[in-house]
């Protein structure tokens, strides 16, 4: 046993520990950017991960056909019934057109938000060690993705870009404790701060804190972004209220929010690279999402963007 400390491996461990701690200190000092080593590595791993995500998606959809055969059969029967009903109905062409336009407005984010500049991206990797479902997407600074760009799906907000590499970037989800987003109730305009919570995130939910005791937030209400801080666009759907509870530490209330977007299972997302009011942070006002230690950096970042 005494030989342990004299062995070659022990010396390697000590030397490696010193080097790794050095790398960690360097990485911590350049928060938000990939370090040189990681950038080189992602150049190699990103195409491989992209391919594996593609294959995985293909296999998943192929096997799902067999897994869901009963439900597809039932759904098929239901659809056939609906088709017969629809054929039986006489519907005016203009009505259909109007309806179609309305649905396009609701579903098509681009149509609904003409000021958004979108970039579609594929989820190529998920961090299995992270309980807040952080993931990597296949777009980076070479495609004009910037730090803190909002990431969404057609259903709602997913998170924000927390680290940008040349060909990929890391997305921190709204379920993470690292994010705190200004959010309001769409019906009552009661505001709070949306953040992650360890236990809630395991169920795919987030926490809307600092609601006033006399607020009118109700179960089922839709929560949207407040737009304050200029990080997220205003009125971006986050999710709906599942439950409202009093906070244990103070007199405020908090709500459990079920995100509209499928954060845990999404494979395709959109990055909003530009929108009206982006980076419009008023001096002295806290940015929407920043954890306290990086708020200073963000203000300067967003201010420079505004310029």
């Amino acid at each position: 046993m005494k030989d342990i400390f004299k062995g070659r491996s022990f010396k390697i461990v000590i030397a490696s520990t010193i080097i790794i701690i050095g790398i960690m200190m360097y990485s911590a000092s350049v928060s938000g950017e990939q370090n040189a080593l990681a950038s080189i590595a992602t150049f190699i791993t990103t195409p491989i991960q992209k391919l594996s995500a593609l294959i995985s998606g293909g296999i998943g959809s192929f096997t799902n056909q067999f897994e869901d055969v009963d439900s597809i059969k039932a759904e098929n029967e239901l659809l056939e019934k609906k088709v017969r009903e629809l054929i039986a109905q006489t519907v005016d062409y203009d009505d259909i057109k109007q309806e179609n336009e309305r649905l396009r407005e609701i579903l098509g984010l681009k149509e609904a938000n003409p000021d958004y500049a979108f970039l579609d991206a594929t989820v190529i990797s998920r961090d299995t060690t992270d309980v807040f479902h952080t993931f990597i997407i296949d777009k980076g600074s070479l495609q004009d993705v910037s730090l803190y760009d909002p990431v969404i799906t057609q259903d709602g907000l997913v998170g924000y870009v927390s680290q940008v590499g040349p060909v990929s970037c890391k997305v921190t989800t709204i379920l993470s404790t690292a994010s705190s987003i200004g959010a309001v109730d769409r019906r009552t305009r009661d505001g709070g701060v949306l953040s992650g919570n360890l236990e809630m995130s395991s169920l795919g939910n987030a926490k809307l804190s600092y609601l006033a005791r006399d607020c009118d937030v109700a179960v089922g209400d839709i929560i949207v972004t407040s737009g304050l801080g200029g990080i997220f666009p205003k009125n971006l759907v986050i999710g709906e209220v599942l439950e409202i509870k009093p906070e244990a530490q103070d007199i405020s209330l908090y709500a459990i929010i079920k995100p509209r977007a499928d954060i845990v299972g999404c494979t395709e997302v959109y990055i909003i690279t530009n929108f009206e009011g982006q980076g419009a942070v008023v001096d002295g006002e806290l940015a929407d999402i920043m954890p306290p230690q990086t708020q200073g950096d963000t203000s300067s970042d967003t201010e420079s963007t505004a310029e």
Partner: peptide, 9 residues
């Protein structure tokens, strides 16, 4: 560390 949300290393 390439995919993790923690500090590299």
């Amino acid at each position: 560390d390439l995919t993790a949300s923690s500090v590299f290393g």
